[in-house]
Design a protein around this nucleic acid. Structure first.
Lengths: 111, 111
DNA sequence: TTATATACATTGACAGGTGAGGTATAGTTA
DNA sequence: TAACTATACCTCACCTGTCAATGTATATAA
C-alpha cells in the first residue's frame, strides 16, 4: 500500500535540485547518479523525470541548454538558478521538519 | 513548491494505522491526536481523512462500527485488523528505508 | 545484423489530496 | 432567544503528480 514511490512522491523536484546544486547535468546522468546514491534501489521513471524538468523550468528553478556533443546522443543540460537554490534550501528545511513529524506520528504514543 | 501535504502524501494511511494500532478511535479524535503530536503543525484535511478510512476499510485494514453515544454527535469507530497491523509494520520498514534514501539524495555528494 | 546503451520526449490513464459544500447535535455567549 | 462555536460525520469535482506505453535517434559490441 505504501510503495516507495509514494514515499518519494513530492521529493522529485528536490532530488533533482539537489543534484543540480552540485553542478550542471542532464537527465540521463542525473538518473544514473540517483541510482548510484541509492545503490540501485531507486530511480526516477523517465516520464516523471522529464515532467519534473518542464515543471522546474516553468517555475524558474532551472534553465536548460543543448550540449554540443559532436558524437553520441544529444544532451539537454540544466543549470540551477538562484531561485532554484532558494527553493532547494527551503525544501531541505521542510524535509527535516516533515521527517520529525512523520517519525513522531508513526512511533509516538498518542497525546 | 514542496508543500507539507506533498510530503505527507502516501503517509495518510500509515499515520491512521499508527493511531489505531494503539486502540480503537474515531475520525475526529484521530485528527486531534495528530494535531497534538505535531504541536498543531499538521492536520489531515477532513476529506483526506474520510477518503482514507473508506480506502483502508475496502482494503481490509480496518473495520468500522457506530458508537452508542446517548448524547452529542454520533461517532464511527474504527478497529485495526490483523491485515492492517501487518501493513503498518511493513510501512514502518519502508519509511525507515525511504528516509535514509531521501537523506542521501538531498545531502550526499554525487557518485 | 541484432542487441544494448545512451539520450530525449509525449500521451493517456490512474490515484490521492482538498476546497467547497452539506447534515446533525449540543453547549456557550451576547 | 439568537448566534456562534465545537463536536462529528460525509461527498463531489477538480487538480496535480506518477508512470506504462510508445516513439525518436546515435553509437558500440556481439
Amino acid at each position: 500500500m505504501l510503495v516507495i514511490s509514494d514515499v518519494i512522491r513530492g521529493f522529485t523536484d528536490s532530488i533533482i535540485l539537489a543534484q543540480l546544486s552540485k553542478g550542471d547535468s542532464y537527465g540521463y546522468e542525473i538518473n544514473k547518479t540517483i541510482q548510484a546514491i541509492t545503490d540501485g534501489e531507486f530511480e526516477l521513471k523517465e516520464a516523471t523525470l522529464y515532467t519534473a524538468f518542464r515543471r522546474l523550468e516553468a517555475d524558474g528553478c532551472i534553465i536548460s541548454y543543448w550540449g554540443n556533443e559532436n558524437t553520441g546522443a544529444r544532451r539537454r543540460y540544466y543549470t540551477i538558478t538562484e531561485e532554484g537554490r532558494a527553493v532547494f534550501k527551503e525544501n531541505l528545511t521542510d524535509w527535516n521538519r516533515a521527517k520529525e513529524m512523520i517519525n513522531d506520528l508513526l512511533n509516538k504514543e498518542g497525546l
